[in-house]
Design a protein around this nucleic acid. Structure first.
Lengths: 319, 319
DNA sequence: TTGTCGCTATAGAGAAAATCTATATCATAG
DNA sequence: CTATGATATAGATTTTCTCTATAGCGACAA
């Protein structure tokens, strides 16, 4: 109970009076007297001079004061820090994100998160899905934002559906009609991004199922390059909706509906180690992310988030 | 018992293992488990993730580590500091000294003290006897070095006898004989120092008792000025032995024995508040001071002091 | 001087807690 | 499927803490 002893020591040192210090600490005077004596025994030095009018510090006592203050102060500071973490008015958030998520969906998400929780320091690490999983497992990141993945140690919290959509350049013949059949598309030059992505296989399967064998393809290793290729009329591409929504509304790309296309989407999730409890910032981020795009009614949100939403244009981030 | 909890927390955080941490702290594993849990309850945050292979920190736990370290560290530092004070391998010594003591006896005393206890920081404040007493009472100084004074709150620890001796200039007629009678001296121009000093009255009494009424006197307010007066043949003076010993051995002044002179000396003491326990440095200073001039046998001294004495010329400081 | 006031110190009882031993539980590795 | 190595839990014992009541002590005032 050494800690209380130090607090008593400081209170008595400050007030010069055990009785008043006891009052201040909601304890009785004999208790304080005992604590002080215990501290003196512990340290092997007399800390106070007892008089009939109160107590005053000895030389040793004076010497101890700053150390006691630092000691108690550090602990209180730590306690405050944890409280900040709990309500996400402080602390840090370390995210891992696969390239697509980090580049297209995350900025808007973080814009809102930082608006609502400005005192959380955020850092983002990027890697491919498997790296994100590994980073999450190794606790290098608190959350991994990537496509749904399975692992016994990991739980996945659904964030949004990332759908593959067809984009072409605005001058393309598909643009006028606004739609195309799989067979028609199969005759186009096709631009693929990221050979390792699960989307690659999904897209290939689409054509295979339609009985199309011969494809003119071109591969790049990132989405942004693929978009540029399309803009420069080198071909058409299936790309994640989140990655093209801005280019489409800016008129740089056209979105084309595909006839008979099955759902080509996948779930984007937050990966989290099951055994690591969500810290304040993590919980806050998940709240922001899950509420995003689902709701426009601020009544459903926590007060902090609601206030933030009131001040923002409610641009739909994910569609 | 919050303090032990923090230490446990740090040990477990460091070792990642309650059982080994328990061993290290000479406690059982259930005790550690209980302490950690108590700390978690206290702070309202889970600090560790429990696995079947040990414990590892949560985000909150990681956050707490530096604060816990600072907290425990500050206390340990304070404890060390007090230990230093106890054996005077640190701490401070604040002395008050009246001008005569501070100027003549103290430097040699401090030379030895600082040699033996080099890590104590020493400061000296000067004032007249009454000021020294007041400073000691107000605890502005830990010890007051001055003539013996009485006060119920104060105890006096004898340091040395400060004797009044007659000094004349080397060319003076007394010098050849080396002695003089009170009557002869009464015919000289007499230089007095410090009208307020008790020595003034003692000296006056000497002549009064010898039936001498008419005195040629000159007064200055400090000893050093009086010495200069004598050196310039303006008169002869009764001065404290400590104040003239160097000038005499340098040949600037002559020491004259006075026939029939009663003991004109007073006790120089260290004043200390009775109720304030002597801190390490104070105790050490008193040891140095009391052993000084009393002994030349290092066997009587504490090991620390003895070592110091071995390395010094044993100049007798006070005679 | 004596009584009173305002402190701190002490004693003893009751309550609270910390610690220990023994055992349960659980996940992993072989 | 068992052995191992870790944490969690239960219950008893011991220790410590805290409280009430009271003693003791020095200062101050009548």
């Amino acid at each position: 109970m050494l800690f209380g002893q130090l607090e008593c020591f400081l209170a008595v040192a400050r007030l010069g009076n055990v009785s008043r210090a006891a009052e201040e600490m909601f304890l009785t005077q004999p208790t304080l007297t005992a604590r002080i004596k215990a501290l003196e025994d512990e340290l092997g030095d007399q800390l106070f001079i007892r008089t009939s009018r109160g107590m005053r510090l000895t030389e040793a006592g004076k010497e101890l004061v700053p150390y006691a203050e630092r000691c108690v102060g550090s602990f209180e500071e730590g306690r405050r820090r944890l409280a900040e973490m709990r309500d996400a008015s402080g602390g840090r958030l370390v995210l891992g994100a696969s390239p697509g998520v980090g580049t297209y969906a995350l900025p808007g998400l973080l814009e809102r998160f930082v608006g609502a929780y400005p005192r959380v320091s955020v850092s983002v690490r990027t890697g491919h899905s498997e790296d994100i999983l590994a980073m999450t497992l190794r606790e290098e990141v608190q959350l991994g934002l990537t496509r749904a993945m399975r692992h016994p140690e990991i739980e996945s919290l659904h964030l949004y559906e990332d759908e593959l959509v067809l984009v072409v350049d605005p001058e393309h013949r598909f643009t006028r009609r606004g739609s195309a059949s799989v067979a028609e598309i199969g005759e186009e030059q096709l631009i693929f991004f990221d050979h390792d992505s699960s989307y690659f296989e999904q897209t290939q399967a689409l054509f295979r199922n339609a009985g199309i064998r011969e494809l003119r393809t071109m591969e790049v290793d990132n989405i942004e390059a693929a978009k540029r290729m399309v803009e420069h009329r080198l071909g058409v591409a299936f790309l994640p909706r989140t990655a093209v929504v801005r280019s489409v509304s800016a008129g740089n790309l056209s979105l084309i509906a595909v006839e008979e296309k099955p759902e080509m989407s996948r779930s984007i999730v937050a990966l989290k180690r099951r055994d690591v409890p969500a810290s304040g910032p993590v919980a806050a981020f998940l709240e922001v992310a899950s509420k995003m795009g689902e709701t426009r009614d601020t009544a459903e949100l926590s007060p902090t988030l609601a206030a933030e939403f009131e001040n923002l244009q409610l641009v739909d981030l994910f569609t």
